[in-house]
Nucleic acid binder design. Sequence first.
DNA 1: GACCAGGCACATC
DNA 2: GATGTGCATGGT
Length: 215
Amino acid sequence: MAKSKKLLQIYQRLYKAFGPQHWWPAEGPFEVMVGAILTQNTNWQNVEKAIAALKKNKVLSPKKLNRMPQKKLAKLIRPAGYFNIKAKRLKNFLKFYLQNYGADVRKMRAVRAHALRNELLSVNGVGEETADSILLYALNKPAFVVDAYTKRIFSRHRFLPKDTDYQDTQKLFMQNLKVNVQLFNEYHALLVRLGKDFCLKRNPKCGTCPLEKLL
DNA sequence: GACCAGGCACATC
DNA sequence: GATGTGCATGGT
């Protein structure tokens, strides 16, 4: 079967099994950007605690976070883990966001996706997944987000070689699916849902996995 | 106590 | 270019 058809079939089966995932779970674009950095190699539940702390202290805005001493920021985001390095990364991003775009999402959206992706990647602490998450979920640009779940699911089911890198994994989706923000949004969210529910541990319990006999 | 989580940068070879 | 390591909390 053609890759594009199969990828779409996988999507449809996941959607049927899980329904819409309503991503990204955040109140606005800036909160998505902060969450994208905080969730690096971290359980989302822990990120929620960190974001709740920022909200409770009424500092979840670009200017307020930019003004805040790094040490204080680190203390607030402590539940998200790696809090020192993440405080630094947030600071780097905030500086970029304020200096280059005046913390204005509309100005950022006006930039072409490819150029903006490179700009984001130039920020220390923003890698490919974080950049694509910001592009897709904060700025509504069609970038397919690849994460550990994506690679694990598709390699474990022999759709991709085990050590396929980010770019090649992303190509699989971007070259075989209709380039569409809503589709990319839902597809990635569904893969995360599948990863969490079924293909997580070393001994994956895929007995009732919605992708059984399909991949 | 072990293992895992929606990565990334940096050192070293 | 490939491989290894530090970063850290909280849930199971």
